[in-house]
């Protein structure tokens, strides 16, 4: 058992898989010698050498194209896109090439690759380095989308993503990089498409993702002091989506609140709301409520960014008001 930060867990997860499988290679900007701009890949170059851990030019299309071509010819690449906002300059490779080619070729090719990226706000970087883009990825058929919320899950879900035969977009909440927790020794391998129930309560079910998970948990503690007991679910993976767990837990309490960092329109919670309305409507005791970042580019000033991204206070107040109306 050791205390690890979220960022240290990334290197540990990648190293665990690179030791096990020679076909795992890693490429990106500043990932090797510098250990990543967020220091998430420190030590990988030293352990695995510059043939397996490769610094690239600032060429996001080349990085992801190379990952794709390598994946379709026998390697298991991990590619880093430094900030998830930068997906916009290489989205063709993600959305048209990687995501569609298996289907278009009637299954002739597979893409066992992982694209990891620093996602979301909280660091006061302004609109072009702060967006939470999980909804971009979720809406593309052919991509798996994984968003861990703590160090242990980072390792286990990273391992599962690397071992998965399909392309995985692995989004790391930048706001969580410094968070710490005890991590067991030895190999950790998790399962994609499994949500986790982190807290059980009888009044409402709060469904959260990534950086919103610790906030949802804290909000649940505060609500409990006011007599509102919440179940909190960490979705962990948007595709595949563990609807079984979510439907069961929403049915049990009769209420669903989503807590989403993505800007409001077409956020993952909207899809979830439609599934709930479609399949367990008669188990609901009140409206489905989405707590999201407003539909705006994220502002840089700390005061404004804090107003934009759902806060513990906003989660508590929204749930409290809705439960008492």
């Amino acid at each position: 058992m050791a205390q690890l930060t979220f960022r240290e867990a990334i290197a540990r997860g990648i190293a665990q898989e690179m030791r096990r499988d020679d076909s795992v290679v890693f490429l990106g900007e500043d990932v090797g010698a510098a250990g990543g701009v967020f220091k998430g890949t420190v030590g990988l170059l030293e352990e695995f050498g510059d043939v397996r851990v490769r610094d690239t030019p600032i060429s996001e299309q080349a990085i992801l194209g190379a990952a794709m071509g390598a994946a379709m010819t026998g390697l298991r690449p991990i590619a880093e896109i430094m900030f998830s906002d930068f997906f916009a300059v290489c989205w063709d490779i993600v959305a048209n090439e990687i995501a569609k080619s298996r289907y278009m070729t009637n299954g002739q090719v597979t893409f066992p690759l992982v694209i990891r990226s620093g996602n979301g706000g909280g660091l006061r970087f302004g609109a072009q380095h702060s967006q939470s883009v999980e909804n971009w990825a979720m809406m593309i058929p052919g991509l798996k989308v994984v968003v861990p919320s703590n160090a242990v899950d980072v390792i286990g879900l990273m391992a599962a993503s690397i071992r998965d035969p399909d392309p995985v977009i692995f989004l790391e909440a930048k706001a969580l990089y410094a968070s710490k927790m005890d991590v067991p020794d030895g190999e950790i391998v998790d399962t994609l498409g499994s949500a986790k129930v982190l807290r059980q309560g009888s009044n409402a079910t709060v469904v959260a993702l990534g950086s919103m998970v610790p906030k949802a948990l804290q909000a649940a503690e505060e609500l409990a002091t006011n007599g509102i007991e919440c179940t909190v679910i960490d979705v962990r993976s948007l595709v595949p989506l563990d609807t079984t767990t979510i439907l069961r837990e929403v049915s049990a309490t009769g209420r669903m609140f989503t807590v989403e960092e993505n800007p409001r329109l077409c956020g993952w919670g909207a899809e979830l709301a439609s599934i709930i309305a479609d399949e367990v409507f008669y188990d609901l005791d009140g409206p489905i409520v989405r707590i999201t970042t407003p539909h705006i580019p994220l502002p840089a000033a700390d005061a404004l960014e804090d107003l934009a991204i759902p806060s513990v206070e906003r989660i508590v107040n929204t749930i409290h008001k809705s439960m008492n109306s």
């Binding site: 060429s59 299309q61 080349a62 992801l64 194209g65 190379a66 990952a67 794709m68 071509g69 390598a70 994946a71 379709m72 010819t73 026998g74 390697l75 690449p77 063709d92 490779i93 048209n96 090439e97």
Partner: peptide
């Protein structure tokens, strides 16, 4: 689009 992808296959070789 396929020029970078061809690079990836070449890298794999």
């Amino acid at each position: 689009a396929h020029l970078p992808i061809a690079c990836g296959a070449a890298w794999s070789a």
